[in-house]
């Protein structure tokens, strides 16, 4: 058994809107799979079908070799889930909610639970209603990661976490992967998936439009670079993969395809770097550049740089 998740031709409609429109997705056992798409693309719907909370209208879904609707309970003992929008019981404390969810899943590893609470700097004595969004998210993350689930379904788990906690989260996910667990990480942030994912699937309008390793998707990414140099930089425009160079005295700004970043930065170095800022492309830019047709029709600019 090497496939943790296999979805093929999955369909789910709500009224007249098709949330999933023939979705295909394969996640190998032991990998961290990035599930990337803009808001409303169908990520949460797909995950909820995998959890047996929603019943697919068509297509097939296999999870750990079982049927997610019929074998839901059996499967749920082997997986852990972090919803994107965590709601807690207003009159239960965070600690009680963590214990409750862990016990309902199976065993509670108290040592790991306490360690995670410590690392995420969570106060377990506060009542659910007094937690901020980020802290509610932490409660769900701790409850999920304190388990020994072999599969983690994480639906935009870091929404609301501060950058420091995002780093802790990434560290913990890497640890989980080191233990051989499989992770499906949904996100609308490309860089988050880039830091953790082995492979990525990009979902749009209920279907997967791109899937592959990050290297394979490298051609999709275009980094924006802003630099200040001692001497004016010359010949950037002639480099392969460099776009939209703008020079303003000692400052230069351009976009470069992922594969050609090295050459471009080397050229900057030759001119004596004083400062360097690079922005990874956002998912929105990527979607705009590759699937911009519809957005353009809606009056949005198609050019990723113009959108900035």
């Amino acid at each position: 058994m090497t496939k943790a998740i296999t979805l093929s031709g999955l369909r789910k409609t709500f009224g007249r809107t098709a949330a999933l429109d023939g979705l295909d997705l394969t996640v190998e056992t032991g990998e961290v799979h990035g599930f990337l798409g803009p808001n409303g693309a169908g990520k949460s719907t797909a995950i909820r079908v995998l959890l047996g909370l929603l019943r697919a209208d068509g297509g097939s879904a296999r999870l750990l070799g079982k049927d997610p609707w019929h074998d839901a309970v059996e499967l749920h003992r082997r997986l852990a889930y972090v919803p994107g929008d965590v709601e807690l019981w207003p009159n239960l404390t965070g600690g009680e909610a963590i214990d409750l969810l862990s016990r309902l899943r199976g065993r509670l590893d108290r040592r790991r639970r306490d360690e995670l609470i410590e690392r995420f700097d969570l106060d377990p004595t506060k009542k659910g209603r007094s937690y901020s969004k980020g802290n509610r998210q932490k409660v769900a993350i701790v409850a999920a990661l304190a388990s020994d689930a072999e599969l983690l379904l994480l639906d935009e788990p870091t929404s609301g976490l501060d950058p420091l906690m995002e780093v802790v989260f990434q560290d913990v996910v890497r640890q989980a992967r080191g233990q051989g667990r499989t992770v499906l990480l949904s996100s609308h942030l490309l860089d988050e998936v880039e830091k953790l994912g082995d492979r990525v699937s990009i979902i749009r309008h209920g279907r997967v439009v791109q899937t592959g390793s990050l290297g394979e998707l490298r051609h999709l990414t275009r980094t924006t670079v802003e630099a200040e140099t001692h001497r004016p930089v010359t010949g950037l425009e002639t480099l392969e993969g460099v776009h939209g160079v703008r020079t303003e005295g000692a400052r230069v700004r351009f976009a470069v395809d992922g594969a050609h970043l090295d050459a471009a930065v080397r050229r900057l170095g030759e001119a004596g770097l004083r400062s360097l800022v690079s922005h990874p492309p956002t998912l929105e830019e990527l979607m705009l550049r590759h699937y911009g047709d519809e957005l353009a029709a809606n009056g949005h600019p198609v050019d990723g740089e113009a959108a900035r």
Binding site: L92, G95, R103, T125, K126, S130
Partner: peptide, 26 residues
Amino acid sequence: ATRPGPPTARPFLGTPLGLALRLHRG
């Protein structure tokens, strides 16, 4: 104002019935 509560759950809060009783008791 809300007061802090217990950092861990009592044993009975570990089943669907325990949760339901806790939610209904007020």
